[in-house]
């Protein structure tokens, strides 16, 4: 899904809310931001590779092309899903706003 909403500095308030709880009930303002960043089409989309199930997750990225291996960032390893969510949110925030979230 491509959304038309543009994330801007006006959304800064939701960053703290996200970092406090990446998965779960969110305010409408945060949900709108998440719809943009999580709605990215498959090309270059971040995913989590379960390198040690329920213990360790490694950042991956889809290519958008069928059959092409998921790119794996071996230096981006997380000990919890929430940590991974926060890191990827940070990366996407930077991408969308050009500023550090």
């Amino acid at each position: 899904m491509h959304t038309v909403y543009k994330i801007s500095a006006n959304d800064q308030d939701v960053v703290e809310e996200f970092n406090a709880k990446p998965i779960g009930h969110h305010s409408p303002a945060l949900q709108r931001v998440l719809n943009v960043i999580r709605g990215q089409p498959v090309r270059d989309k971040y995913v989590l590779i379960c390198t040690k199930p329920h213990k360790e997750w490694t950042l991956g990225q889809l290519t958008g092309e069928r059959g092409k291996p998921v790119r794996m960032f071996k230096d981006q390893v997380f000990g919890s899903v929430e940590d991974a969510e926060r890191e990827i949110f940070r990366r996407r925030w930077n991408l969308h706003t050009g500023t550090k979230g």
């Binding site: 899904m1 990215q40 995913v47 899903v81 969510e85």
Partner: peptide, 15 residues
């Protein structure tokens, strides 16, 4: 195949 999984699940897709 489709970009909607993360929207449906409200979290990163695990592989």
């Amino acid at each position: 195949n489709a970009g909607m999984m993360e929207l449906l699940s409200g979290r990163l897709a695990p592989f």
